[in-house]
Simulated assay, not measured.
Amino acid sequence: MSPLLTALWPLFALIVGGYALRRLDFPGEAFWPAAERLNYFILFPALLFSSLASAPLANPALPRLALAVLLGLGLAWLALLLCRRLRGWPAGRFGAFTQGVLRFNTYLGLAAIGSLFGSAGLSLAALMLALLVPAVNLLSVWALSADQGVSARALFLPVLKNPLILACLAGLLVNLAGLGPAGGVDRLLGLLAAASLPLGLLCVGAALRPQELAGEWPALLGNCAVRLLGMPLLAWGVARLLQLPAMESGLLVLFFALPTAPTAYVLTRQLGGDSHLMAALITLQTLLAAVSLPLLLALRG
């Protein structure tokens, strides 16, 4: 078995395991929402904080990597706005398509990066998340609210209260201040971080909704093609244009090749979007990524 498949198949096995456990009603329906909240508010922020607190901020490629992230995201957003103008999508549908193209499964991404690139890759990935998470959340809220307008408070408050963003900011501040977790705090954060990704992947599997895949196949397949093939191709082009080093280029392509985030379903329901379409996109993209992600990474290598 190739090193790439050796690194990736356990991640998808955990996703399948999460889906199977929920179907078997083990350990119970109440477990999964509680597990998601525990991971979202405590375990995953601990991973981001500890990664950013020790991230190599002196890396000379960081400005180019930040530019690549924002350039790729900006080009995709402009293309989505053009498609909406041409197709006349209402906000509920436009918001689902936007999240299907721009959002990404952070748990799967960091688990893959940890397997493929180790701690150095995780530190750079955490820096990318410090840019991507707030930007993608802002664009998602705006897209879902485009028809009725959205106030600055409604747009920025969810971003400012996001525990992942707060953990990124705290980790950066500690890093810039030259401080470091000491007295066993680093060990505590490491234990919390180690629990985050396996639990997150199980929750991803538990959130899959194959029953939502009925109908709208052209729209579903088109969105999946853009997210799983078009976006990594865009990232590859941007990385070549900006002459990113090998690791940074690989991280950019990987993040842009990830399936959309399961949390997109919650946001879509909260803001009155097309939750049926969003659930179908999350499920189909996650299933197809089991094939597209190893293939893209193998071709790139």
Results as ranks from 00 to 15, higher is better:
Leu131Trp: 01
Leu73Gly: 14
Pro10Thr: 10
Met128Asn: 10
Ala34Val: 14
Arg187Ser: 13
Trp77Lys: 14
Pro218Glu: 09
Leu213His: 08
Ser249Thr: 09
Phe49Asn: 01
Ala55Gln: 00
Ala170Phe: 08
Ala182Leu: 06
Leu144Gln: 03
Phe94Glu: 02
Ala30Glu: 15
Leu4Pro: 14
Val266Pro: 05
Ala96Asn: 08
Phe41Leu: 12
Leu251Glu: 00
Val266Leu: 15
Leu78Met: 14
Gly250Asn: 03
Val253Arg: 06
Ala7Gln: 05
Leu252Gln: 00
Leu221His: 00
Ala290Lys: 09
Pro134Lys: 10
Pro45Arg: 06
Leu297Ser: 07
Ser151Met: 06
Leu127Ala: 02
Trp9Glu: 15
Met231Gln: 09
Ala46Tyr: 02
Leu213Asn: 09
Ala177Trp: 14
Val69Trp: 01
Val16Asn: 06
Leu82Phe: 13
Arg300Asp: 13
Ser140Ile: 11
Leu192Met: 05
Met278Asp: 12
Pro134Val: 13
Ala7Asp: 10
Ser123Glu: 13
Gly273Glu: 01
Leu281Gln: 15
Ala289Gly: 03
Leu11Val: 11
Thr106His: 08
Ala195Cys: 09
Phe256Met: 11
Ile15Val: 12
Gly273Trp: 00
Ala195Ile: 01
Ala20Arg: 10
Leu220Ser: 11
Leu192Ser: 05
Leu228Ile: 08
Leu108His: 11
Leu201Gln: 09
Leu296Asp: 12
Thr283Tyr: 01
Leu5Gln: 11
Pro3Lys: 04
Leu299Ala: 05
Gln285Pro: 04
Leu188His: 11
Leu80Pro: 04
Pro3His: 14
Ala35Val: 07
Trp32Arg: 05
Ala96Trp: 03
Gly109Ala: 15
Leu155Met: 10
Ala30Val: 10
Tyr107Ile: 09
Leu213Asp: 11
Leu188Ala: 14
Trp217Asn: 11
Leu281Glu: 13
Ala61Asp: 00
Leu86Ser: 09
Ser50Met: 04
Ser51Ala: 15
Gly237Leu: 03
Ala7Trp: 01
Ala68Asn: 02
Thr98Trp: 07
Met278Asn: 11
Pro181Ile: 01
Ser2Asp: 15
Ala170Pro: 04
Leu38Ala: 06
Ala34Gln: 15
Ser275Met: 06
Pro259Ala: 01
Val150Glu: 04
Thr98Pro: 07
Leu164Arg: 07
Leu201Thr: 08
Glu212Ser: 15
Val238Glu: 06
Ile42Lys: 06
Gly121Asp: 04
Leu176Phe: 07
Met231Asp: 07
Gly74Asp: 13
Gly222Phe: 12
Ala146Arg: 10
Arg87Thr: 14
Leu213Ala: 05
Ala7Tyr: 07
Ala206Trp: 09
Gly100Trp: 06
Gly72Ala: 13
Leu202Met: 04
Asn59Tyr: 05
Ser151Cys: 05
Gly28Thr: 14
Gly205Glu: 03
Leu296Lys: 08
Ala120Lys: 05
Val185Tyr: 00
Pro56Gln: 09
Leu124Gln: 00
Ser292Gln: 12
Ala112Asp: 06
Met231Ala: 11
Ala143His: 03
Asn39Asp: 11
Gly230Glu: 08
Leu82Pro: 12
Phe156Cys: 12
Leu267Lys: 13
Pro218Gly: 07
